[in-house]
Simulated assay, not measured.
Amino acid sequence: MLPTVNRVLLGAVGLVLLAVGGAVLAVGLGASAPSWWLHDSPHDTLLSTAERTRWRGDAWWWPTVIAVLALLVLLTLWWLTAVLRRRRLGELLVDTGDGAGALLRGRALEGVLAAEAERLDGVAHAHVSLKGRREAPAARIRLVLEPHVDPATALDQLTGRALAHARDSAALAALPADVWMRGVRHKAERVS
């Protein structure tokens, strides 16, 4: 959901900034402005001296301005950290036994784990993503099951085969997994 909100918010802010900036530029270059616009001519200022100093003497003005700006800065920092935070594990630290260790790409293990899960009986599609730390990864697995398969059986096969192979091959002490299952959706067909 966050990528959708991110795109919609960035698109709305971009459109508003483009519209206002384009209108100010057009009026500054000599285009005629509507009667309700902030300024009318290229030599007009956006805010007059009276508008800029109207609430300067009121006790509530500066604390309100500072609070709104601080809130805006905090929201911007929250948004920036949400955008820059990595959703997936980039690499895993594999113990090679010689004390040096090796790095395994997270997407490689995700692909192998998904392929092995799809080979299980009754699994139509599998999607795997790794999260957590390099030393202690966790898997999030989404399975699409065929109508004939029992979910408990599919879960037992997944944990006994695919997750066990991934844990053993990466020399991990544990590989916790959240498994989400749903049935495959078939399109209705007309029978004549």
Score class of each variant (00 low, 15 high):
residue 39 H to P: 10
residue 9 L to A: 08
residue 64 T to L: 00
residue 43 H to Y: 13
residue 174 A to L: 06
residue 24 V to G: 00
residue 160 G to Q: 12
residue 58 D to R: 11
residue 112 V to T: 10
residue 155 L to I: 04
residue 91 E to V: 12
residue 44 D to L: 00
residue 61 W to S: 01
residue 76 T to M: 12
residue 79 W to P: 08
residue 80 L to D: 05
residue 83 V to N: 11
residue 100 A to M: 11
residue 42 P to N: 12
residue 131 K to L: 09
residue 29 L to C: 13
residue 81 T to Q: 14
residue 102 A to Q: 04
residue 54 R to H: 14
residue 38 L to R: 07
residue 52 R to Q: 14
residue 132 G to E: 08
residue 79 W to V: 14
residue 27 V to E: 09
residue 49 T to K: 06
residue 165 H to D: 13
residue 37 W to P: 11
residue 16 V to W: 12
residue 189 E to Y: 03
residue 119 R to A: 13
residue 25 L to N: 07
residue 148 H to W: 15
residue 142 R to A: 12
residue 127 H to P: 04
residue 148 H to P: 03
residue 16 V to Y: 13
residue 108 A to K: 06
residue 25 L to D: 01
residue 165 H to W: 12
residue 58 D to I: 02
residue 139 A to V: 01
residue 130 L to S: 06
residue 4 T to Y: 12
residue 123 V to G: 00
residue 19 A to L: 02
residue 1 M to I: 07
residue 66 I to L: 12
residue 52 R to C: 09
residue 26 A to N: 08
residue 5 V to W: 12
residue 147 P to I: 12
residue 139 A to L: 13
residue 145 L to Y: 08
residue 55 W to M: 05
residue 180 W to V: 15
residue 165 H to R: 15
residue 177 A to W: 01
residue 48 S to F: 01
residue 30 G to I: 02
residue 50 A to N: 11
residue 57 G to C: 11
residue 38 L to S: 05
residue 149 V to K: 15
residue 173 A to F: 01
residue 167 R to G: 07
residue 68 V to C: 01
residue 142 R to V: 07
residue 26 A to Q: 04
residue 183 G to Q: 08
residue 145 L to P: 08
residue 184 V to F: 09
residue 164 A to P: 09
residue 76 T to Q: 09
residue 123 V to W: 03
residue 44 D to S: 11
residue 69 L to N: 00
residue 10 L to I: 05
residue 128 V to S: 02
residue 129 S to D: 03
residue 100 A to R: 14
residue 101 G to W: 02
residue 99 G to E: 09
residue 37 W to L: 05
residue 119 R to F: 02
residue 85 R to P: 03
residue 150 D to L: 08
residue 35 S to D: 15
residue 81 T to Y: 07
residue 172 L to D: 11
residue 9 L to G: 08
residue 35 S to V: 14
residue 61 W to P: 03
residue 61 W to C: 00
residue 31 A to S: 10
residue 59 A to T: 03
residue 144 V to G: 10
residue 154 A to W: 10
residue 52 R to W: 10
residue 101 G to M: 02
residue 106 G to N: 08
residue 60 W to V: 01
residue 116 E to R: 06
residue 108 A to R: 03
residue 143 L to F: 08
residue 95 D to L: 03
residue 21 G to H: 01
residue 3 P to L: 14
residue 87 R to C: 04
residue 163 L to E: 07
residue 4 T to L: 11
residue 33 A to I: 08
residue 94 V to R: 04
residue 90 G to C: 11
residue 16 V to S: 06
residue 106 G to M: 09
residue 57 G to A: 14
residue 54 R to Q: 14
residue 121 D to M: 05
residue 104 L to A: 10
residue 178 D to F: 08
residue 83 V to Y: 09
residue 191 V to A: 14
residue 62 W to M: 04
residue 93 L to C: 04
residue 80 L to H: 07
residue 71 L to S: 11
residue 165 H to Y: 15
residue 38 L to I: 10
residue 94 V to N: 00
residue 151 P to Y: 09
residue 174 A to G: 07
residue 182 R to G: 10
residue 185 R to D: 07
residue 146 E to G: 05
residue 90 G to H: 15
residue 129 S to P: 04
residue 185 R to M: 12
residue 40 D to C: 13
residue 59 A to W: 03
residue 86 R to C: 11
residue 38 L to C: 06
